[in-house]
Simulated assay, not measured.
Amino acid sequence: MTTCAALAAAEPLAGTAPVAATWLCLEQPGPWGADALVDSHLDRRVGAELARRMKETGVRIVLIRRPGRHPDLHLPRPRRVYLASTRPGAAWLARHTVEDPEELLDLDLTGDEPTFGTVTAAPLLLVCTNGKRDRCCALLGRPIAAELAAEHGEAIWESTHTGGHRFAPAVVALPTGYVHGRLDGPQTRELLKATTAGEMMLQGCRGRATWSRAGQVAELAVRSLTGDTTAASLRVVSESSDEVSVRHADGRTWSVQLAPTPLPAWPNSCGKPPVAGTTFSVLDITQMI
């Protein structure tokens, strides 16, 4: 069977990142099912409550594990937890540990400041490897995660579903929140290097998860025009049905005119029927200031 990644190889990447300004990553080794929060060795009641809160708050909650074999007969105690805010100018990554994942249910994850742990300057790359959700993530993601973890240790984690199996290998950079697809090992190394330096990487970029799909396309269009790759330099300040305003930290502002554009039908996941989609085409970019 031809994989969804192969079938959707021509689909544009811009504007396909999941939308989430805050990410919570909980260490959970062992097997992951298709809906990992409630189909893993995480306590099902805790997982279901985390899933409910994710829907209510928009915080993206993923399970993470160390690359390699996944025995879970001896679960780590305490477990590592990361909380990231991806907003430009207020992006941070906090590291924490919990003895029991149920402790997370007592925390407010929606604030602008870290609610637990210690803020770290070290970045995190999440590589989706949830093969029970889609085989492309396992086949294409696991080799990259293993290779880079051997070189960079805890900067690299395997992750459950982050959205977009067909763009595998799918990689999320935290705390910047830029999401990438179709990266190979050397490109992923460059992404880690860029994120460490407070930069973003245009190659393979699907967008900054902080923004809407239209906002992601507009921001990337401005970056392509200007060549600016400083992660904190640009922010989406307003949107309408066909226009997105993007502002630079130095005050320059661009008006990006967009139009929804239909795409050919591709399967969103292996074994699923093709689904017609849309993207946003950039019609014009005007610098206002």
Rank of each mutant, 00 (worst) to 15 (best):
R60S: 09
L63M: 08
L63G: 01
I64K: 00
P67D: 13
P67Y: 08
P67Q: 11
G68I: 07
H70Y: 07
D72H: 14
L75K: 10
P78G: 11
V81A: 13
Y82S: 01
A84V: 03
S85T: 02
A91K: 00
W92F: 09
L93A: 03
L93W: 04
T97L: 08
V98R: 02
P101C: 07
D108P: 04
L109K: 10
D112Y: 13
E113V: 14
P114Y: 08
V119K: 10
V119Y: 12
A121H: 11
P123T: 06
L124D: 00
L124V: 12
N130L: 05
G131Q: 05
K132P: 01
R135S: 06
R135V: 08
L140W: 00
A145W: 04
A145V: 10
L148C: 00
L148N: 01
E151C: 10
H152P: 03
A155D: 11
G163M: 13
G164W: 00
F167Q: 04
P169W: 08
P169F: 08
A170S: 15
V172D: 00
L174I: 12
P175C: 00
T176W: 00
H180A: 03
G181R: 06
G181E: 03
G181K: 04
R182F: 08
R182P: 06
G185Y: 00
R189Y: 09
L192Q: 05
T196Y: 05
T196Q: 04
A197Q: 11
G198Y: 01
